[in-house]
Design a protein around this nucleic acid. Structure first.
Lengths: 234, 234
DNA sequence: AACCAACTGGGTACAGTGTTCGCAATATCT
DNA sequence: AGATATTGCGAACACTGTACCCAGTTGGTT
C-alpha cells in the first residue's frame, strides 16, 4: 500500500460500491474544522457527520493524516477560477492576498502545513498558476522557486501570527482589546522596572496595535516590503 | 485568579514549601518536547519526569497552556548574551538567524506561537533587544513594529515550512531524498497529464530542491530579499 | 449459473489524553 | 494554640486514534 494517498486508487473494482467518497470525508472534516476548530476533527465526529461507523472511514483513508491532506487539497479548490493579469507584481500580490484570505476563512489550514507539498490535484493546479506569474521574465526555475518561497514564507508566517491571535481569543474568551486592558495591569510592572525603555516607549506611543484593521494594514505593509525586496532582483 | 500566568505569584507564603518550581516544570517539558515531540508533552509525562503526582502540577500551573507559555519563555532565555553591532542590517540578520536556529533546536517552538506575545521575562528582554536595532534611525514606533513584524513573519513562515518537512520525515520515516524518489513514481502522472507544463519544467530542471543544504540557502536568499525590501524605506 | 476473491461496513478493545474534585498533611500567621 | 492557607495526589470522567475481527455484498471468471 503506497504511503501517499494520491497514488492509491480511490476504491477497487470488485465488492460493493462505497457509500461515500474521499471528497465526502474531506468536506465533512472541513465543516467540523471551520465550526469547532481543528482539534474537534476526530474520526468519530466525521463518521457521525456522515452517518456512518467510525472505523468505516478507514476504507477511504489509511490514517487520520490522510484526512488532513484531503482537507487541505479540497480547500485549495476554492481558488480555482483565479485569473491573473500578466504583470508580476500585481499577480504576486493577488496570490498572497488570496492565500491569506483562504487561510482566514479556514483558520486550521496553516496548522497542517506539512512542509512537504500537498500533491492533490487542486494544490498542483495552484502551484502551476503561481509559476505562471514568471512567464515572460526569463528566470531560471531556481529563481522562480526562490521568489515563491520567500513570498509564501511571509504569508504563512503572517497568517500564523494573525490566527494565533484569534485562537487565543477563542480559548481565553478575551478579545484583543480586552487582552490589551488586562495587559495594562501588567504594563506598569514592565514600565516601572526600568529595564525595558524601548518597549516602554512602544507601549506608550504605538498606535498600530490598537487599530481595528491592524492585521489588514500589517499584512499590506509587510507584503509591499517583501515585493520591494523581490523587485530589486527582477 | 488572573488568566495570565506572569501576573500570578509563583506560590503563596503560608503552607508547605513547594517541592518544585515553574522553571522545573518548563525544563521538564522542554526536555520531553525536544526528544519526543510536542505531542508527547503530557501532564502525566512531565509529572513522571519530575517524580511527582500528575495532578500536583496544577499547583504550579492552572492549565496545560500555561506550561507551553513557560516553555516558550524558558527557551527565549537561550538568546541572552546576544550582542549586536549597531548596524541595522547586520543586526536584523543576526536576529533572524538566531530565531531560526532556536526554532530548529526546539522544533516545537513555532507551533505554540499564540500570536499574542509571550510576556515572560526572557521574551520581554528579547523584544527590547530587537527594538534596540532601530536606535539611531529616527523611526516612529509604528515603523519599527512594521519592520520587525515583516521580518518575523518571514522567519516564522520559513521555519514552519522547514520544520514541517522534518516532522514529515519523522512521521513517515522517509527522508527528503527518499520522499523525492517516491514522488518520482508520481511525477510521470503529473508530467504525462500535460496539464502542468511549468510544474513539469520545475520537476525536470530545478536543482535547489535536491541540494543537501537547500534549507540554509533558501533561508539566506529569502532573508536577503526581505532585508532589501526593508532597506528601500530606511 | 455457480463460485471465489475482493471489497465494504462496523463493533470491540486498548492505551492514552486534560482536568475537576475531594481529602490528608503541613507550614505560617494571629 | 488555633485558624487559615497551601501543597501533594489518587480517583474518576469523557474524550482520542486505530488494530483486529467478522459478516454481508458485489464483480469477474469459469
Amino acid at each position: 500500500m503506497h504511503p501517499v494517498i494520491w497514488m492509491r486508487p480511490e476504491h477497487g473494482t470488485r465488492g460493493p460500491k462505497p457509500t461515500h467518497s474521499r471528497r465526502d470525508v474531506a468536506v465533512a472534516g472541513i465543516r467540523i474544522a471551520d465550526q469547532a476548530g481543528i482539534d474537534a476533527v476526530s474520526m468519530r465526529r466525521i463518521a457521525a457527520e456522515l452517518g456512518t461507523g467510525t472505523t468505516s472511514l478507514y476504507r477511504y483513508v489509511s490514517k487520520k493524516d490522510d484526512v488532513l491532506e484531503l482537507m487541505g487539497d479540497e480547500v485549495m479548490g476554492e481558488l480555482r477560477g483565479t485569473v491573473l493579469t500578466g504583470e508580476w507584481r500585481a499577480d504576486l500580490s493577488t496570490i498572497a492576498r488570496l492565500l491569506r484570505e483562504t487561510a482566514l476563512r479556514h483558520p486550521w489550514l496553516p496548522s497542517l502545513a506539512s512542509g512537504r507539498a500537498n500533491l492533490g490535484p487542486n494544490s498542483l493546479w495552484w502551484s502551476e498558476l503561481s509559476l505562471s506569474v514568471f512567464d515572460g521574465l526569463d528566470l531560471s526555475t531556481d529563481e522562480m522557486l526562490a521568489n515563491l518561497d520567500t513570498l509564501s514564507a511571509f504569508v504563512l508566517g503572517h497568517v500564523q501570527a494573525e490566527l494565533g491571535d484569534r485562537a487565543a481569543e477563542l480559548r481565553s474568551g478575551l478579545t484583543h482589546e480586552q487582552w490589551m486592558e488586562r495587559q495594562g495591569e501588567y504594563g506598569p510592572t514592565i514600565v516601572n522596572s526600568g529595564r525595558y525603555p524601548r518597549l516602554t516607549r512602544v507601549i506608550v506611543e504605538a498606535e498600530s496595535p490598537h487599530r481595528a484593521d491592524r492585521q489588514d494594514r500589517r499584512f499590506a505593509v509587510g507584503l509591499d516590503r517583501v515585493l520591494d525586496g523581490l523587485a530589486v532582483h527582477l
